[in-house]
Design a protein around this nucleic acid. Structure first.
Ligand SMILES: [Mn+2]
Ligand SMILES: [Mn+2]
Ligand SMILES: [Zn+2]
Ligand SMILES: [Zn+2]
Lengths: 141, 141
DNA sequence: CCTCTTATTGAAAATTATTTTCAATTATAG
DNA sequence: CTATAATTGAAAATAATTTTCAATAAGAGG
């Protein structure tokens, strides 16, 4: 993943700097959505003079290249995670923040019905499931 | 709607001031999601000395009472609209911003499958459809 | 109506999140 | 190795939201 991202950045004319590589490594390997500050803190371990502003700038490019996406949650919408290339849906653990992709939804019928009923031409959908992962279920209750 | 909201505010110990009433009227009647600033601008028409800070404070209370909800869209998550009492789904026009509720989704099977496959205990879901409303389809293209 | 208490107000300051500016540095094409 | 243009981090600027505060006013109880 890591490597692929660096290639893509490079092919799009972006230079591969240490700051950028640190951000790429952190976010490409995370199973949680991370905020710019969280990424910054982690990145400082690899490169202690990195600036928060470089984190923002790298996120901007990764988002533009659709390698990452913003994750919307009830508490905040400032976190980012890996994006899947294809159309996708998220399954989020409200306790620990773990996120997985899932598929297998079949909304065709629903979309056709709503479309007919409302006159909307529907082009996109967001589906997210929230719950508690297996691990967090064990840990408490 | 208007009246009902004022009653609820009142029953929860909140006083009914002109500033509050202006905000309630604006947001309870809108078919679009509105940002604090947009609400503020509209509210000034009714009460020209209202402060933006009162808009924020009223939104906070209306959200707490579940009369309004934040709307998440690709471009921003800072807008609010009426909340439906029951579980609900949104249909949004990406062109003009109109929003409707819809129901009739049947995600039981999907949720059971994902739950079994991943071990998550799923407690909630978000489903939003994006498209273009009948009106906006006519207007352009 | 009056009065008292306390929630609410708007202005201003403070905080937080993000973006822009800028001069110095550095990746990379050749 | 060199030249060029992208990138950097610091600092300033901007935007969004929250807090502080003294003045005001809603509304409970008389
Ligand atoms: Mn889907
Ligand atoms: Mn549903
Ligand atoms: Zn978990
Ligand atoms: Zn429309």
């Amino acid at each position: 993943m890591n490597h692929k991202w660096l290639d893509i950045l490079s092919k799009n004319g972006y230079r591969l700097t240490d700051s950028r590589k640190a951000v790429v490594e952190i976010i490409s390997l995370s199973t949680h959505a991370l905020t710019p500050i969280e990424i910054y803190e982690k990145a400082k371990a690899k490169r202690d003079d990195i600036g928060l502003v470089s984190v923002y700038r790298t996120l901007e490019k990764l988002e533009e290249l659709k390698l990452i996406q913003r994750v919307h949650q009830p508490a905040s919408c400032q976190a980012f995670m890996v994006a899947s290339q294809e159309h996708q849906h998220l399954l989020l653990c409200s306790t620990c923040g773990e996120i997985q992709f899932f598929d297998g939804d079949d909304l065709e019928t629903l979309i056709a019905t709503i479309s007919k009923k409302t006159g909307f031409k529907i082009s996109e959908h967001w589906l997210q499931l929230f719950g508690q992962c297996a691990n967090c279920q064990k840990t408490q209750s």
